[in-house]
């Protein structure tokens, strides 16, 4: 089937089989490998993207379900070489170890800060509870989100 979706602002289409996930569409057909393929069960959040503005696991959404809808991925966050403040904060806080979970965490953190620019720690933990870091680097990930929240409070986006 042909699936057509607006991905990072641009209408794209690809021919996929019915069982293809949105994640496969992005990674294998549209050249967007930022969203990572890990558990494939909606447990780990490594494939987190926005579908019509809502955070979802791209592995648990069929490509067909995204037809005629708006998808935004981690690739949309940086403006050229200029990283998004959340990405910058992850680098500065040392919130990246092996890096595999990082795109999902960054997307989930951006999603949180869009909804709540000044989250407390419990809110950050709840918002990131759908993302797993098997290096267990959670403390620095929390540092990064706090840092990003501070930085973003002081500047227009």
């Amino acid at each position: 089937m042909i699936v057509r979706a607006r991905v990072n602002g641009e209408w794209r289409s690809a021919e996929v089989w019915a069982g293809a996930s949105l994640l496969h569409l992005l990674r294998d057909h549209l050249g967007l490998p930022g969203s990572k393929n890990a558990c494939e069960q909606g447990e780990c959040g490594s494939c987190s993207v926005w579908l019509d503005g809502e955070l979802v696991c791209a592995c648990l959404v069929l490509a067909a379900q995204a037809h005629a809808r708006e998808v935004r991925t981690v690739e949309a966050l940086a403006a050229g070489d200029r990283l998004h403040p959340v990405q910058e904060a992850f680098v500065e806080a040392g919130a990246v170890q092996c890096g595999f979970c990082t795109p999902g965490f960054v997307v989930a953190a951006v999603d949180l800060l869009q909804r709540d620019p000044a989250p407390d720690d419990a809110t950050i933990r709840e918002a990131l509870s759908g993302n797993l870091c098997r290096c267990t680097g959670y403390a620095k990930i929390l540092d990064a989100v706090r840092l990003a929240a501070q930085r973003m409070a002081g500047r227009p986006r």
Partner: peptide, 9 residues
């Protein structure tokens, strides 16, 4: 239920 990613869908 689950996490935000699941609750959104």
């Amino acid at each position: 239920i689950g996490d935000l990613q699941v609750r959104n869908v």
